[in-house]
Design a binder for these strands. Structure first.
Lengths: 185, 185
DNA sequence: AGCAGCGGAGAACGTACGTTCTCCACTTGA
DNA sequence: TCAAGTGGAGAACGTACGTTCTCCGCTGCT
């Protein structure tokens, strides 16, 4: 392994953590697995993240920024405010179809650790709140009643959960059609 | 502990498993916790369930029968087919408000074990498929187009997940209003 | 060249837990 | 009363894993 500064080692560690935690769940991945996949030694891993839980938090935090960034970037390409809302579900469909898609990382983490780790639970709530606020902004921009935002949020959550369990992209299209109906009355 | 036949011991074990697995997650509950909470000795636990995974499967199976039974019983009290569909969301609201509610047991289990236990993953899919089929029956009875069933299913899933994460009963009411809109056009 | 320190490999340590085993009290049938 | 078996309490065993420690080579400075 070539020399690597702390920032690069941190990225390598988080890359490996994201791939393994998301793909196999958090509890079934050991720190030694992270070391093997990242090439970052245990000693350095523990310098960067004093305990596994902090690595988990950093993983969720970085993924939150990236995930919402990707969504917002996709949506922002549309001009029409109504189209932007529908674009959310189109982006979900593309995500569901990606290799290795295994549902929503936060919903999965909550099922695994929500009852035992208050910090993870708080991060999940923050992420979902941010998504809800984002949708509320789109709904307001489209001049739709505020109650629609909560409804669209539930459709998106249901689609993520169902796509994760069934492995199909169809929930995104179903949710999109429901969203269209809810928007037009 | 008084004498107890196998059937009673099995029920005691499953009662404890359900309370602990649902409340704290599966991986964080040890077989010794089950023994302590149920009063069934380890030896007998292993006679009844040769491995922890089989206890987990029995827990999910028994809960599936009971959960869907409770829902169907509540819904069946309504006469009008359209009212029956809305009653699903009313039942969800009552469930969300129960003490110790912590989201959908199957969604949580899927987050925890979906990637590592094929049998648990299959049980989750079966449970969700059964719920979807049940909703499809209600939708057909109400003379609504079949596409509505999938939309209502996503709303229910989104409500369960969101209520679990936020601890609020509100998602049930939001989903109910969305359902009403989707049904009336 | 010599040395101080960083970093890697991997052993070691402690704990948790799934599973099995030992020992013993008690019941039951003759 | 005695023998055989059932079942409970809890010790024991093996493994996995989070975390720390040891040893050693390499690098960079003087």
């Amino acid at each position: 392994m070539a020399v690597m500064d702390s920032a690069a080692a941190r990225e390598q560690a988080l890359d490996a953590a994201e791939e393994l935690f998301y793909g196999r769940g958090i509890q079934s991945v050991g720190m030694d697995d992270i070391r093997g996949a990242s090439g970052v030694s245990l000693k350095r891993l523990y310098q960067l993240f004093p305990a596994k839980e902090q690595l988990v938090e950093a993983y969720l935090e970085r993924r939150d920024v990236r995930w919402r960034g990707r969504l917002a970037e996709f949506v922002a390409r549309r001009e029409d405010p109504g189209e932007r809302i529908l674009a959310v579900f189109e982006w979900l469909e593309g995500w569901f179809g990606e290799d290795g898609f295994r549902g929503c990382a936060w919903i999965n983490s909550y099922g695994e650790l929500g009852a035992t780790s208050a910090r993870v639970a708080a991060q999940v709530r923050a992420h979902k709140q941010a998504l809800r606020d984002y949708l509320a902004g789109l709904v307001a921009d489209a001049g739709l009643p505020g109650t629609v935002a909560g409804q669209l949020f539930l459709l998106a959550e249901g689609a993520m959960v169902t796509a994760g369990i069934t492995g199909s992209t169809e929930p995104a299209r179903v949710a999109r059609e429901a969203a269209r109906t809810l928007m037009t009355r």
